[in-house]
Amino acid sequence: MIKIEIQDLHYTYPGGVEALRGISLTIKPGEQVAMVGQNGSGKTTLVKHLNGLLQPTSGSVLIGGWDTKKAAVAKLAARVGYVFQNPDEQLFSSTVGMEVAFGPHNLGYGDEKVSALVKDALALTELSDKTATNPYDLSATWRKMVALASIISMDTEIVIFDEPTTGQDALSVARIANIIAELRKRGKTVITITHDIDFCAENFERVIALSQGQVLLDGTANEVLGQENILAQTYVDPPQLTRLGKRLRLKETVRNQEEFLAALKKK
């Protein structure tokens, strides 16, 4: 069970842009966390610290007690999987099957275990019939699934998705929601950066809003997503049905269709 502890994290990019300005957070094992906030608020910079791709300028990041400044990126890779925003920055193999097997092979798992992990990841992402296909012969939607599968197959305790729903249609978004639900059942920690606030409301229990490199809000989805004025500071609108609920003066903050209709019936 791997806990994430971030202590007063600061990060300044070479060139002087101060992207993180004192972030402290604890994420418990098995939590499902959405990270929202304005473009340039530091979301991607923050998650790149969790697998050691970036090192703190000051402060610390502990992954299950391992300090990311000391632990090798290769070792962290066994604990933290990170799916890039743009699948094309991640994919390089000539078949989907090889792409998805690369990660677990690299972690040193035996052939039998690798093939079981690959099979499972392909089934979860609905790619089982595309094993022999070149990822670049697939549409962007399916390339995204390959990117997800190639991280899921590493079976890490912590999985990070950077804007998984960008440019995806309704069916694909539903597929991604199913994957996240399955990872939750398996007890994985899932951290997702997203601008799709309705997707965030419908799939995550905890929401962290970042603004200018600091934590603006951190709490349950209903607590955070109801704060229209504070969220506006970081260019986030509450979910559609949350806004509608407020305008209709429903008593509680609602975040999805089920909660909305229940509150409407009570009125």
Partner: peptide, 20 residues
């Protein structure tokens, strides 16, 4: 046909069933 709809549309479509 697998198109996305706004949450307002889908919530109202569902609410119709309850005369809401």
């Amino acid at each position: 046909n697998g198109f996305g709809t706004s949450r307002y549309t889908s919530a109202a479509r569902e609410a119709l069933k309850f005369n809401l």
